[in-house]
Write a protein that binds this DNA or RNA. Sequence first.
DNA 1: CTGGGTGCAAAGTATTTGCATGAAC
DNA 2: GTTCATGCAAATACTTTGCACCCAG
Lengths: 135, 135
Amino acid sequence: MNNYTNALREHHLKATPQRLEIANTLEYYGHINIDNLYEIMLKKFNSISLATIYKNINLMLENSFIQEVKIPHEKSVYELTKEAHSHLVCNKCGSIEDVSIDLPVVTHAVSNNSDFKIDKVDVVFSGVCKKCQSL
Amino acid sequence: MNNYTNALREHHLKATPQRLEIANTLEYYGHINIDNLYEIMLKKFNSISLATIYKNINLMLENSFIQEVKIPHEKSVYELTKEAHSHLVCNKCGSIEDVSIDLPVVTHAVSNNSDFKIDKVDVVFSGVCKKCQSL
DNA sequence: CTGGGTGCAAAGTATTTGCATGAAC
DNA sequence: GTTCATGCAAATACTTTGCACCCAG
């Protein structure tokens, strides 16, 4: 379990216990949605407010400390910001895995993109994870 | 302007005037979010309810007559179901273009995917469209 | 200390539901 | 005629805001 005090400060965020716990929770779970994060946070801070969760998530997004991942048919999940990658979502168990991706290759897989300046690409694969295949 | 009566029926949806207009609006605009769709529908049906829009969009999604597209930092937009493709989103003007994509190429751009069975991939490119580049 | 964060309550926004009426087939 | 859609109102769900108090720096 990392100490995120400096990381938060580098993103211009005061290192409150609630924020440290959000960071640790994101590290531990990898990806988590608002409701699950709130439930988990309640175990450590029995009077934490959902409003606090929302305010912090929004601030952390603005300061790029975390990223939002939009999953088809699901609520958005959040993850600590790290190097660019894409996601594998299992349709059976709902698990989400990170996977590194070769950006230039993806960029060249699209046709007619010569006149559109690509800054970023979000890729979400849906399918069945290894575990669920063997059930 | 297409007549979507049969297309709706093939998807087990009664062809009501409201649904036909939703189909035509999606055809015309390509991609549209709930609020804009409601505004446009109001011009043809001055007493249409937002509830009707939601109910129809949800039914059309369930029956795969339309698809939802999740755009980073934006409300979801909806489009008529067509062959697999990905999206180019302009960060300046917000326009959304379809672009065909070579699925196998994208699939092979990810590492470690040998043990995950990929069924589908959603790809959204963000950047600057041709028009906005020349402004 | 001081600025900003927290928790609560309330407000605001988004989406769904129940029901009576009306239209599609 | 029967089934299902529509529009309205109400309910529910989701997210943001205002404010008094408190804590990090």
